[in-house]
């Protein structure tokens, strides 16, 4: 089976790769491009560990084909922090002990980024429903929700 040539943009950088037509974008990211901050928890779109932003929209990289990245703009967890340091969402996850094992954390941070880009002042219910596509088995979500609230406040002050 011949591979497909793809040109795309990941975290602001032009990237090209060859992938199998049936290969998921998650598989391309992790096994070929070695951008492994994006995690696989299920590969069926149920856990959100592979959350990435596709043209600013939150998607599961496991539900997207590698070929579908052609011409698009993607953001992964590696693209959240800036030259100035951690993004406030990352900083608040740390300060609020919102991670235990840390495997779901990149997905949560990307999903939170998508939420706060869209709705800078979400209430608790909105946060909980927005993040309902991201599974965490360690924290019971309490500290994650508080971290998101704190990040929203921080970003509002910065704005």
């Amino acid at each position: 089976m011949s591979k497909v040539h793809v040109q795309t943009t990941i975290n602001g950088e032009a990237v090209e790769y060859l992938c199998e037509p049936q290969q998921s974008f998650l598989d391309v990211l992790r096994e070929d491009l070695l951008k492994q901050g994006t995690k696989e928890g299920c590969a069926t779109g149920d856990c959100g560990a592979c959350s990435v932003l596709l043209d600013g929209r939150l998607v599961c990289a496991c539900l997207m084909l590698g070929v579908e990245a052609e011409g698009r703009t993607l953001t992964t967890i590696e693209g959240i922090a800036s030259d100035d340091g951690l993004h406030p969402i990352q900083q608040k996850f740390l300060e609020h002990a919102a991670l235990q094992c840390g495997i779901c954390t990149p997905g949560f941070i990307v999903a939170t980024k998508a939420l706060l880009d869209k709705n800078p002042n979400p209430d608790e219910t909105t946060i909980r429903y927005w993040l309902a596509g991201n599974l965490c088995r360690c924290t019971g979500y309490d500290k994650i929700v508080r971290a998101v609230q704190a990040a929203a406040e921080e970003l509002a002050q910065e704005a």
Partner: peptide, 8 residues
């Protein structure tokens, strides 16, 4: 459980 299933 997902986030929307639980309270604080």
């Amino acid at each position: 459980p997902v986030a929307s299933d639980l309270p604080m």
